[in-house]
Computed example of a mutant assay.
Amino acid sequence: MAYVKRALVGLLGLAVLALLAFGGLVLWLWATDYRPPQVVDLQVRGAGEQGAPAELSLLTWNVGYAGLGAEQDFFLDGGSRGWPGPDEVRRYLDGITSYLQSHPADVVMLQEVDRGSKRTHYVNEVVAVAAALPDYAWVFAKNYDVAFVPVPPTSPMGRVVAGQMTLSRWRPTAAERHALPGEYSFLVQLVQLDRCFILERIPAPDGREWVLINTHNSAFDAGQLREQQLGYIKEVMTREYAAGNYVVVGGDWNLILPGVDPDTAFAHTEPRPEFYLPFPEDWTPAGWTWAYDARVPTNRSVSRPWSPGENYVTVIDGFLVSPNVKVEEVHTDDLGFAYSDHQPVRVRLSVGER
């Protein structure tokens, strides 16, 4: 009987210690939580030319923090892993920067760029990308800054610092980080991304401005967060258009773009994961144009390593342009998801009639 009592006391003690440890972790995460203001001016770094282009080429690519190449799966998508080894990170990053150098665009919009994360072995990818395009002006906006991500439990992600990056051949006159609305529950939000978009202004030849928005919307919610974020994006983009500007919104929308059939657009044997949601049908303002390449998927499921015809694939990356912007051409480069779980989308635009 005494042995049983001692065992129960021991178990109680362990439970108390576990609760104290959990409480300490929550307190630490709350104290170090990244809480940026709604709008933050971003410092424009690098070079970039002065000018007022009538035509722009743009590229958007979620580079998957140089950690989600073809060989990888991811635990949040149903896989078993969280990040690759250091040699794989370097190989993916080399592939990403080589592509950017060999496929130039006037404006490059990147998502999921790590600046100092355990998951990518603390490689500063921001520095690597900026060095690959030394003649470009660039800005970086954090959307993930967590002291310790405790999942997956068997191999925690740990420290994460990451964000979005916009690089431009033409030096912008201003750049801002805009926080996207909506949050997960308290505990989840402490280790989740703080979603945002980057807004840049580049002069246009008629005295107006190109307003370029690089967005990375939420994933893994039931749709309510993405709905709030779309509301804010629409508010900003339509206001800028009403002011006479040429507006381009590009990035990873984390929604299946309008006109893409969620289930039959591409060959795949994996059922569509439930967090792949279609774009709201009535959201796009009249006269605005979606620019994407319907022939090539831009994103794959990372529930397993890449296997053509097996993984679920769709189009969630692309551009939306205001009625005074003309889409000259758009193309997705099929890289076989070699370096990321997304593929780069390229568009060429010109000033159109208002």
Rank of each mutant, 00 (worst) to 15 (best):
A2F: 13
A2P: 08
Y3V: 10
G13W: 08
L14N: 05
V16S: 06
L17P: 08
A21H: 04
A21I: 08
G23L: 06
L27F: 13
A31T: 14
P36R: 05
P37M: 04
V44F: 11
G46W: 03
A47G: 12
G51K: 12
A52P: 11
A52W: 11
E55G: 14
L56I: 12
S57I: 13
L58D: 10
T60S: 12
N62S: 10
Y65L: 13
A66H: 06
G67E: 02
L68F: 12
A70T: 03
Q72N: 14
Q72H: 11
F74P: 03
G82M: 02
G82N: 11
G85E: 09
V89R: 00
V89E: 01
Y92F: 13
L93V: 02
D94A: 15
I96T: 02
T97L: 09
V107P: 05
V108S: 02
V108H: 07
V108P: 04
L110Y: 02
R119S: 13
N124L: 08
V127S: 15
V127N: 14
V129N: 00
Y136Q: 04
V139Y: 03
A141Q: 04
N143L: 01
N143S: 12
Y144K: 07
D145T: 09
V146S: 00
A147C: 10
V149K: 04
P153R: 07
T154D: 15
S155V: 12
S155P: 09
G158S: 05
G163L: 01
G163Y: 02
Q164M: 12
T166A: 14
S168F: 03
P172G: 09
A175T: 05
E176K: 13
H178K: 06
G182Y: 00
E183H: 11
L190Y: 00
V191G: 01
V191Q: 01
C196W: 03
I198V: 15
I198M: 06
P203A: 09
A204I: 10
D206M: 02
R208V: 05
W210K: 07
W210F: 01
V211G: 02
L212R: 03
I213R: 03
A222K: 14
Q224N: 10
R226E: 00
Q228Y: 03
Q229V: 00
Q229W: 00
Q229C: 00
I233T: 04
K234P: 02
M237K: 01
T238E: 13
Y241Q: 15
N245W: 09
G250H: 02
D252T: 09
N254K: 06
D261Q: 12
A265Y: 07
A267Q: 11
E270D: 08
P271T: 05
P271N: 09
P273R: 09
E274M: 12
Y276V: 01
L277E: 08
P278N: 02
P280Q: 03
E281H: 12
D282W: 02
D282I: 06
T284C: 02
G287E: 07
G287N: 05
W290A: 07
A294Q: 13
V296F: 08
P297C: 07
E310G: 10
E310N: 08
T314Q: 05
V315Y: 10
G318E: 04
V321P: 03
S322R: 06
N324M: 10
V325E: 01
K326N: 15
H331G: 09
T332M: 02
H342E: 10
V347P: 08
L349P: 12
V351M: 15
R354S: 14
